[in-house]
Structures are given as C-alpha cells and as structure tokens.
Computed example of a mutant assay.
Amino acid sequence: MNTGEDIGGLRKIADFTRLISLVILSIHFYMSCYLAFRLWGFAAGITDRLIGNVAKTGLFDGYLLPKAAALLCLVVSLLAVKGRKDEKIRKRDIGIYLTLGIIIYFASAIVFVGGFGPQLTAGLYIGMTTIGYLLMLTGGGMLSRLIKSSINTDVFNSENETFPQEERLIENEYSVNLPAKYNLKGKIRDSYINIINPFRGLLVTGTPGSGKGRAKVIL
C-alpha cells in the first residue's frame, strides 16, 4: 500500500523531472535563437559561458536531440499522474492532443527556413514548440490518468463502490437488526446493520437527505 510519504516523494520526483524538461527546452531556445536573444537584450557573457559548457555535452546538437530529451523527461514526469474517480476521459481527445502536440512540437523547426527575421523566427519557433509541449502535456496527463484508473483495484472505485460488509445476522434480546443491501464487485449483496447494544450511545451520520432522521425514528 502506498503511504502519503511515498506519494509525496513520487510527486516531487515528477515535478523535478518536469523542471529538467523545461530547463532543457529553455537552453535549446537560447542556443537555437541566440541572435534574437541578443537583439532582445537577454544575452550575457556569464550566461554564454555557462551554456557553452553545457553545449559541449552534445545534448543540444541540432533540433531533434534536445527536443527528444525534453520529451523523454516529460513522459517520465507523467508517470506520477494519479487517476481520478469517475473522471470522464475520451480516448479520441487523448489522440487529438497527442497527435497535434507531437506534430507541432517537432515540426516547429520549419520556421527557420521561412526567411523571416531573427526575432520573428525565434518568436514563432518558441511559440509553436511551447504549444506542442502543452498539448502533449495535456494529452499525456489524460492518458496516464486513464491507464491508472483502468487498472485501479481500490475497493472504493466506481466498480467496487463499497467494501465488504457484515452479512451475518447477529442478534440478542435487545438487538436492533436492519436489513440492507450493498454493491460489491458489481453484485448487489444482502447485509445486516446489527446494533447489538442499543443502550450505549449511538451516532448516526450521513450526508444531507440520506435518511438520518428516519433512522432515528426507526430506532
């Protein structure tokens, strides 16, 4: 069973991996659109030296390699996305988001052969790549939630709406036994609410309209 600490740690790892993905994209933007950044006044000597050292790793050669690395980190971060109960997710929507995202994300480099000025080219390239990234993030998150929801074995999910309840009739001369029904693994089963010592304090809880007043009258 996953504890709160395990889930919290996994979420932190996912957030950090997504941050790495964004850092890779940011460095790629700076290197591929360097002239535009200089014209915008965002270039600095210390930044150039730091990024120059990072560039020696070979990770930022060309357009596809850094984008693929950023996408890989994004995919890893999406593994921690948790499914939601009764969430309406359509596979068609997932396919549209992912397909459009991948196409825009990788095809954005075509703006460099469009003959535009450096600033317009950089703006178009960064904008298209960012849109593709966000589309993949949305579609990937939906896909991850769909997969986790489909394999969820929690007894409180939409198929197993409740947990196993008392099905025995336990009675004595003072007991109050209320027949009931509950849903377990898609089957309606008979059960009993056995109040074997009604002289003790009894707490009846429920949401508004669930019949708490009627229960007190019956008791």
Rank of each mutant, 00 (worst) to 15 (best):
S77C: 13
L74W: 00
T47N: 11
S108Y: 11
S144H: 06
E166V: 08
I131N: 01
L120D: 04
G62V: 04
D154S: 15
V75A: 13
L72V: 14
G117N: 12
N152E: 02
L72R: 04
G114T: 07
I89A: 09
F116H: 03
L169Y: 14
L50K: 05
L79K: 12
Y133P: 01
K148C: 04
T47E: 08
E167T: 14
F112V: 08
A70F: 00
R168W: 13
F106R: 03
D154F: 05
N160E: 12
F112L: 07
L137R: 03
E166C: 14
P118W: 04
E159T: 15
L79V: 15
D61R: 11
S149H: 15
R168D: 15
D61K: 13
V75C: 11
F156I: 07
G123W: 09
L146Y: 15
T130A: 11
F112Q: 04
G101I: 09
E159Q: 14
V155W: 11
P66A: 09
K85G: 06
F60D: 02
P164F: 01
I131F: 01
G123S: 15
V75D: 08
T121I: 04
G62A: 07
C73S: 10
T47C: 10
T129Y: 00
R92N: 04
L135A: 03
M128R: 06
A70T: 02
I151K: 11
I103M: 03
A55I: 02
L98D: 03
G117R: 06
L135D: 04
G140N: 03
L98E: 08
D154K: 08
N53M: 03
N53Q: 06
G127A: 00
A68C: 08
I170K: 06
T121P: 01
N157A: 13
T99Y: 10
G140P: 00
L64F: 11
I51D: 01
Y105N: 02
R90V: 03
G83M: 06
D61S: 14
I94F: 14
L143E: 00
L50W: 04
S77W: 12
G123R: 11
K67Y: 15
G58T: 00
Y105A: 03
P118L: 04
R92D: 10
T129W: 03
A55H: 06
I151S: 11
L143S: 05
R49I: 13
I170N: 07
G140C: 02
T129L: 01
I104F: 13
L74S: 01
Y63E: 12
K82Q: 13
K85T: 09
R90M: 00
E166M: 12
L71M: 08
A107N: 11
S108F: 09
L64S: 14
E166H: 08
L169V: 12
F116T: 09
T162Q: 04
I46N: 14
R145D: 06
